[in-house]
Every structure is written in C-alpha cells, then in structure tokens.
Design a protein around this nucleic acid. Structure first.
Lengths: 217, 217
DNA sequence: CTTTTATGTTAACATTGTTCACATAAAATT
DNA sequence: AATTTTATGTGAACAATGTTAACATAAAAG
C-alpha cells in the first residue's frame, strides 16, 4: 500500500477484487481491461504480467466464485442434526438467494460461455465436496431413511437442480417483476417437487410451517 | 438473384438468413458484421442501410425467433381434443426439443442480454397468444375440470416453466454428457411436477404409457 | 556487486462496430 | 422522356478493445 512505488505489490489480487466489485453492478461483458488499469492506476498492459489473457482473469473469478457458491448452498445439506426436508428447503432457499444477490456472478458460473472452465473445476473435485454432489448424497440419505422414494438419485438431483436453476434464471434474467416475491413461488415449487419424490413418512419429519399442503397427499 | 447488380434486392432478408444460419453452429457472440458482409459480398457498412446497429439486427432475430418458439410449443396446449395431461407432457417435450436443437437461439431468446427486447415483444402480445400464456390457460382449464388442484395458476405456470427452462439450460449449457438421454430426466421431472399439482382424477385422463408411477399416489 | 527474475511502461497492431461523405440504381414526379 | 427524389451500396476513417513486443526498473538471488 506504499505510495509511488513502481511495483504495486499485490496487483493480481487488486485486479480480482476490482473485477468482483464490478460484477456486483454490471455484467461481466461490460468489464474492460481499461477499467482495471484505470482503477489500479497502472498501464493497460500491466495485467498481462498476472493473467495471460482476459479470459484467464475470468477463469480465476469462476474458480473463486464456485467456492463462494458452494459455501452458500452446500453446508446446510450436510447438517445431519437437522430434518432432511428442512435442509433441502433451506439449501434451495440459499441457492435462490445467492443467485438473486449475485446475478452477474451466477450467470458467469452457470452460463454457457465458460463451460470449459467449469468442467475443469468440477473434474478436480470429488463428487461430494460441491453443491450438486452434496444434494445427491442428501437424496441418498433420504432414500435410506425411507423419507424419499427409492429411485435414481442422480436423476432426482437433476430434477431438483433444474427447478432451482430455472427459477433462479427466470428471476435474474428479467422474467419477473422486481416487486414480485419469488419466496412464495419457491415454496410452491418446493412442495411440488417434494410431492414427486417423498413417501408419506415425511410429514412427521419437518418443522417447516408452510408444509401443510403435503398432508393433502 | 441477378448477378452484378449494384442493388442486391433483398439484402435485409439475406442478412437475417445468414445470421440464423450462423447461430445454428455458433453463439451469437461470435457473429460479426464482417461475416455478414463477406457472405453477401457487400461492403462492411451496407448492413447499416437495413439495420441501425448490430443490436437491431439481433432484435429482429429475437422477434422472429420467438415466433418460431411459440409455434413449436404453444399449439399443442390448445388442442382441446387431446387429454390435458398429454398436452402438458408434449408441450414440455417440444420445449426441450426446441432448446436442444436450437441452443444458441434459445439462449438468445431467454438470456439476460436482450431482456429489453423481449419485454417489448411480450407487452405487444396479449396474454393468450404466446407460450407462457397458453400454459397458464391450460392450467386454468385443468382447474375447472378438477384435474388440477385449485391454486394460483400463474404460480403453477411459473413452477412448471422454471423446471423446463432449468433442464433445457442445463442441457444446452454443458451440464450433461452429450450421450446422456434427457428424455428420461424429463419424464421423471414431469411426474414430479405433476404430482405436486394434480388431483387423483388425473389417472383416468391420460394415455401416456409411462405415467404408471402416478398411481402410487 | 552483479546477475537474474518479476513486474510495469510505452508504442503499436488487428479486429470490431460505427459514421460520414460520396456513388449509383430505382422510383416518383414533372 | 427528362428530371428529381429516394433507397441502397461503397470507401475511408474513427474510437474502443484485447493483445503483443521492445524496453525499463525494482526486487531477489547469487
């Protein structure tokens, strides 16, 4: 942080910090290298000492972004002290919250453009240490406990994930009025989804107040 | 089509045709005006006589694209001669087929980038003449007939749409192995979704062979 | 104290979307 | 038929952007 030094000291982290700050407000498409050089008061080519290209900067953001994402949605799924259905419910709620609070980051993580990086990241992790893996494992727990119907857990996870990803995308990509509360939509969705995979046993195992509709089954 | 003419005749349609051809293979991001001028053998600025900007070309594509999309998914929902559940099922199937066969177009239509254009288009149509409107109307039909639980039809439509949009997006944005058959995933999803909104009456009203699981309800 | 390595600068380039002055064909008007 | 107007296409130039290469300087290693 010393002034007037030719070498900045931690330019790389600065670039990343500024870039993450930027996508809080605007889409990653709008981020230019000029913005980064201006905000760090460096030359336009300084960034190339730290990232081989703009894409590599973005790849780094994606890697860090997935960590943030996983930390937001996965831990609750592993909380064996809580009722399974509650954990599903909360995890989905956190998922939606992450997407709607970080729309540009969410789009970066789950969009098509950087699918290659994503696959690279995914292949490094083993199955159970990221969001989808945690979901699948929780589903298998439910099947063992007799709470969920015994079926292909991978497929069930995809079905749930599709709904979350779909609703999140519709919310952040401009298909809902901003005013519209998607909380209610989420609860409806959750009940619909659950209705498709639960057994009757579940009624005894949740503390969620709005789950009353399930008793209609 | 006459050769050596200074005035091309139907350049505008040519530009659009080439652009649609292009996004069969590559993302709209990769389409440059140079490609369009090269393929039409015109100058780089010729396109500005027909579109005020690249964005306006893309806006036109979106308008035409939505027509294609609606024609693919909505008509089946209005086929009053078929069982309602079958229509839901087929409409969703067509939805997925459209997305997976036209991934770049689908992303263009439902992505964030051109949300403004989309809203413009949507506001011009009345509610019942596009995909979502048709879905909502079909849901209301089901509620009147006692096939579907009486609930907020808008919310139910969003829940269904979220699932379709989510699964479609996961498929086309690189979250599934290409080999993986999403047909089975779709059937699982459909059954889960339906389980959340149908009444018991529905069992009598479908001809779909795989709907056997519903009888477990 | 010298050499090497890491980091930053300046200048230049190609690509892209865009604009403007100009050219020419087609259509409208006289 | 001749002239004017409008529609459409061209060529040159611009600014913004990502990128590279040659050069500069500070820090680290020897």
């Amino acid at each position: 942080m010393k002034k007037n030094e030719y070498h900045h000291g931690n330019l790389k982290e600065e670039f990343l910090r500024i870039a993450f700050e930027f996508i809080k407000k605007e889409d990653i498409d709008k981020l230019t290298l000029k913005i980064l050089s201006d905000e760090t008061a460096t030359s336009r080519s300084a960034i190339y000492r730290h990232f081989s290209s703009k894409d590599e900067l973005i790849e780094t953001m994606i890697k860090q972004g997935f960590k943030q994402f996983d930390d937001a949605v996965a831990p609750i799924l592993r909380r064996l002290d809580k009722p399974l259905v509650d954990r599903f419910y909360l995890s989905g709620k956190y998922y939606l919250a992450f997407a709607s609070h970080n729309p540009n980051l969410y789009r970066l993580l789950f969009g098509k453009k950087y699918a290659r990086i994503r696959e690279e990241i995914m292949s490094l992790k083993d199955d159970d240490c990221h969001g989808f893996g945690a979901l699948k494992i929780a589903i298998e727990e439910g099947q063992r406990n007799g709470i969920l119907k015994k079926d292909n857990s991978y497929n069930q996870a995809i079905v749930i994930w599709s709904s979350l990803h779909g609703l999140s995308s519709l919310v952040i990509d401009g298909f809902m009025d901003v005013e519209q509360m998607y909380e209610k939509l989420y609860e409806d969705m959750f009940q619909s989804l659950l209705a498709g995979i639960i057994t009757n046993k579940v009624k005894l195992l949740t503390t969620l107040p709005f789950m009353n509709k399930l008793s209609k089954l």
